[in-house]
Simulated assay, not measured.
Amino acid sequence: MVAAIATRALPLVDLTSLNDADDVASTAALCAKAVTPAGNVAAVCLWPEFVAQAKHALMGTGIRVATVVNFPGGSLPAEKVVDQIARALADGAEEIDIVMPYGAIMVGQGGDQRAADHLAACRAACGAATMKVILESGSLAKPALIERAARVAVDAGADFLKTSTGKVPAGATPGAARIMLEASRAAGRPVGFKASGGIRDVETAGQYLALADEICGPGWVSPARFRFGASGLLDAILAVLGHGPAAVTSAGY
């Protein structure tokens, strides 16, 4: 059972490193790690300044290159975020993980519209690139706020709803995942889900896969619709599959 979950989870991983100390050497190591004896991950997710390096290193592997903008606080003005997106796309990014201005959702009184306008500008800037919107569900905390944020993101054109930056104390939770998966199901168009922040073992990954199966149907999960944003999870997956020690770390977050 655990091996089956590991096999299923491996191609769904966005192998992530967003550390202050990341550099050319750590980026090369991350890209090498993304190609495993058991199969490749879905994507690597790293700082914008390493997108071009990763794109070159992963050429021909089928592994996508993702980066983050408006990260981690979600507080930059839309024009600066649009510029970040343009630069990342020019360097070869295929997926953009955007922190929505979730503080506006928490304030209310027109905040939803401000967040919607911000994300609409980001959507236009992303063009055909995959736009994953980070709700920062751990900071929103209340189910009603998470539901509102998810609705704003979907209406603004999000391709994925993502739980967390991993930079706040509370990352992904099953409760937040349920709300976001229900929003994906109700979207009326394909909207994926990315669980990120604190997912480090195969058993926990299995809980999120089971939730997706329950809410969206057993045939819904695929790399085009479901991702795990993680670093240590890959080590745990490979250990279960017989390809290395269970070296579970929190390096990527």
Rank of each mutant, 00 (worst) to 15 (best):
A28C: 09
L238S: 02
A236T: 10
A32M: 10
V69T: 15
V240K: 13
E95P: 01
A38D: 02
V191A: 03
L233P: 12
V13E: 03
I134V: 13
V81W: 05
L89N: 06
P48E: 06
W220A: 06
L15S: 05
V68M: 14
K33V: 08
V2E: 13
A88F: 10
N40Y: 05
S196I: 08
K142F: 14
G171F: 01
A52P: 08
Y253I: 15
Q207G: 08
K132R: 09
S17Q: 15
G252P: 09
A212G: 02
G74C: 04
T27V: 09
T36Y: 00
V65S: 05
A224H: 15
G74L: 06
V240L: 05
P218N: 09
V154Q: 11
P174Q: 06
I63A: 04
A28G: 09
V51R: 06
V81I: 12
V133K: 03
S250F: 13
P223R: 11
H56M: 13
A230Q: 08
D23G: 03
R8V: 04
R227K: 05
V68G: 10
V44K: 01
M106G: 12
M106S: 13
R8D: 02
V107F: 03
A230I: 12
K80Q: 15
A239P: 03
A66H: 02
A149I: 08
R123G: 08
